[in-house]
Design a protein around this nucleic acid. Structure first.
Lengths: 135, 135
DNA sequence: TCGATTTTGACAATCGTTTTCATTTGCGCG
DNA sequence: CGCGCAAATGAAAACGATTGTCAAAATCGA
């Protein structure tokens, strides 16, 4: 019966970047799948609990999920325009976090690191950013 | 008239770590201050807009605020037990983020970095972590 | 003091997420 | 094959943080 959970996972695998729960729900509905919002949320939680997907919060407090290639610790470089995501490793950052932590007497250090930017395709495609309408 | 705004700011200055809007509101009320939740939110937004306080999201999606010493770009080392916060600078991380970004063709790089841990006082005080009840 | 403008705050509205709860489904067992 | 239990499902209600609304109150300038 974890059929739905797999379906949800499938949607994420098809996606390039992070998707919100509501988003996934909408897409599944659009594809004709019979599933409830509740179940999508539950599937997403289950998947993140088992480490099958990564979760992070957008600036406006929404949780977004993504099926990640590796189960290892890694970070993301996310395009703020199209959502495309690149998994990146940052040994330097890991060490920095550890160092900073112990330097201040902290133990059990964990950290969250996300990098946002505009990817190449997006910056060439639409560029309403650099439009100096004056001076 | 920005009296309230200052009052809110004062509360944050008195605090060691990050506080949530509701939290600040509750404390002000407890102290007898006459202020509405709406106003607290507005003050907090104003303060973060002007850069007087830092904002970040907790894992459960709540926004928390803190009066920060410097207006410069910096990150935090937060004690997950008592909330005590240390502001840290990480030039290495800044550079890493930039590098990773451009390496993948991303522009306008921004990043979020937060380090969590258990501070010295907390790890000595309560230590339900390393309590070998003996075999 | 009068009126205009800003600020305030009680309350309703939003919105994502979670909970509730009755129903459905899968499945082992007799 | 039928029964019943336990997990899964989903519609709708509940929730909690945040935001919007709007009228009352404070403040300022003339």
């Amino acid at each position: 019966m974890s059929n739905r959970r797999d379906a949800v996972h499938a949607i994420l695998r098809q996606s390039e970047g992070f998707r919100s729960a509501q988003d996934v729900y909408a897409e599944m509905r659009a594809e004709g799948a019979k599933i409830g919002l509740t179940t999508v949320y539950r599937a997403l939680q289950a998947l993140s609990d088992t480490g099958h997907v990564d979760v992070l919060r957008t600036d406006d407090g929404e949780s977004v999920y993504r099926a990640c290639a590796s189960g290892d610790h890694h970070h993301h470089l996310v395009c703020r325009r199209c959502g495309r995501t690149v998994e990146v490793a940052g040994p330097a950052v890991e060490r920095w976090a550890e160092a900073i932590g112990s330097e201040h007497g902290f133990t059990e250090i964990t950290h969250t690191v996300e990098v946002f930017g505009t990817c190449a395709s997006c910056s060439t495609a639409a560029k309403p950013l650099r439009t100096p309408s004056r001076a």
